[in-house]
């Protein structure tokens, strides 16, 4: 093994880099990033105070579980909202189509922070929803639903015209065409993007901390306040989110690869 082959990808696609080469290169990249971080703290001359933060580990866990719970429930509802929006968008009844269109454009065109404020102070107040968690789940479902609707719409539009023609020739009704031809293919091609959107949902739920929903980020901020520390608690926070998003992003990659081989 030459030093070159340890750090460079070969030009031929048929020869992937060896496990050793991948491990070594990964370690170098990670080391470089860590060095940057250490250098930053060195410059700040920061006094670490991990022990006081460590005492609040139960609080971190509680917040992490809250984020997991809120994200999971929001995910289910956002799929529901997204699927309904997609069906409305495909409806031949034009007002419904425009309703779906306006919904998606409004949500995608405004920051989540603004949506949280409007939903919390205006809509939730007017509808007299007392439970903050319910409000949070509604906001995330509505927000993420718009993106999921776009993903599903792209998936549906990606099903080839020849497939539709074939379904028609077989004698499938419109419903059967959707059920047996469009939906399975669209869902399959949307899976990588949907997994990615799930990771986004988890990260975006951190903004719910501004309306005092006691999720992961809010708990971390509280620990910071209790311990008079500046940023010790942000590290467990980042790691906690990565523990959720990394596996999902990995899954998304795997799905993407499988899809490429299948078609």
């Amino acid at each position: 093994m030459t030093p070159r082959s340890l750090f460079f990808d070969s030009e031929s696609a048929s020869k992937p880099p060896s496990a050793l080469a991948r491990a070594a290169s990964f370690a170098i990249a990670l080391l470089a990033l860590s060095l940057c971080l250490f250098a930053a703290f060195y410059v700040l001359q920061y006094e670490w105070n991990w022990s006081s933060v460590f005492r609040y580990k139960a609080k971190f866990l509680k917040g992490w579980l809250a984020t997991l719970g809120i994200s999971s429930i929001s995910l289910i509802f956002s799929f529901l909202v997204g699927a309904i929006a997609t069906l409305c968008y495909r409806s031949r009844f034009l007002p419904l189509k425009y309703l779906a269109n306006i919904y998606v454009e409004l949500i995608r065109g405004t920051p989540l922070l603004v949506q949280i404020y409007i939903f919390f102070y205006v809509i939730a107040n007017a509808a007299d929803i007392q439970n903050r968690y319910l409000v949070g789940i509604c906001i995330m479902a509505i927000f993420s639903g718009a993106y999921i609707s776009e993903i599903l719409r792209a998936g549906i539009e990606g099903v080839g015209r020849s497939q539709l023609l074939s379904a028609k020739a077989i004698g499938f009704s419109e419903y059967q065409t959707f059920r047996y031809v469009i939906a399975p293919q669209a869902l399959r091609s949307s899976l990588p993007a949907l997994a990615g959107q799930t990771a986004n949902l988890i990260k975006d739920s951190s903004l719910l901390s501004i309306i005092a929903i006691s999720e992961f980020t809010l708990n971390a901020q509280e620990v910071n306040a209790f311990t008079y520390s500046s940023f010790e608690s942000f590290f467990p926070l980042a790691i906690g989110y990565l523990a959720l998003t990394l596996p999902i992003m990995r899954l998304s990659r795997i799905l993407e690869k499988r899809l490429r081989f299948e078609t």
Binding site: S162, L165, S166, A169, G171, Y180, V181, Q185, E262, T263
Partner: peptide, 17 residues
């Protein structure tokens, strides 16, 4: 009418899934 007829396409148009 389509239920009583069969069609074969140039690009086969089978369902890939």
């Amino acid at each position: 009418y389509r239920k009583r007829t069969g069609v074969v396409f140039q690009a086969f148009n089978l369902f890939p899934h």
